[in-house]
């Protein structure tokens, strides 16, 4: 039943997103002067309409199955833990993604090598390693290899920090 709740949620989110894109985002983000019958907003609008229809069908199918099982009442929806998204389960994912953005911002201030060594060591610990020194050593060697290969072999210029590299 958890899958059906997820489908219902997905379908509703898709329909709402499509409505938002159709009525707000497209007029706000695609501005053109001209009388073209098939303008630059033609294709995005077509996609959004098709997406909205698919989302509505997904939601409808899930709702019908839930109704059949007697789970489509406000009381059942509130009482059933399967109907809710367990955000706690995704705390690690949130931390990982948030730290990744911070890493990229930090890279521009302290440079690629320093930011990457610190971040990779922290990631190794986050993913399951337990020895900080081993993680730091592993991280330093790996980042050095990546940095040297990309800088000297592929001539990539990485962000430099106040340390000068």
């Amino acid at each position: 039943m958890e899958k059906k709740f997820a489908d219902l949620r997905s379908g509703i989110v898709i329909v709402l997103a499509c409505a938002l894109i159709y009525f707000w985002l497209i007029p706000a983000q695609i501005r053109y002067r001209g009388q073209a019958e098939i303008g630059p907003d033609f294709f995005p609008r077509l996609l959004v309409v098709c997406g909205g229809i698919c989302g509505a069908i997904i939601a409808f199918q899930a709702a019908m199955k839930l109704k059949k099982a007697g789970k489509l009442t406000p009381k059942a929806l509130l009482a059933d833990p399967q109907a809710r998204v367990n955000f706690k389960k995704y705390a690690r994912h949130g931390i990982f993604l948030g730290s990744a953005i911070l890493y990229m911002v930090a890279m521009q201030y302290i440079g690629f090598p320093a930011a990457s060594v610190i971040y990779l060591a922290a990631l190794l610990l986050f993913f399951g390693h337990s020895k900080p020194l081993v993680s730091l050593a592993l991280s330093a060697v790996y980042v050095a290899v990546v940095y040297l290969v990309f800088t000297y072999a592929f001539k990539i210029s990485f962000p430099k920090g106040f340390l000068g590299f």
Binding site: I30, R31, Y32, G39, P40, D41
Partner: peptide, 9 residues
């Protein structure tokens, strides 16, 4: 946009 060159999103 590939035909009119308008910026989109």
């Amino acid at each position: 946009d590939p035909i009119l060159g308008t910026r989109r999103f």
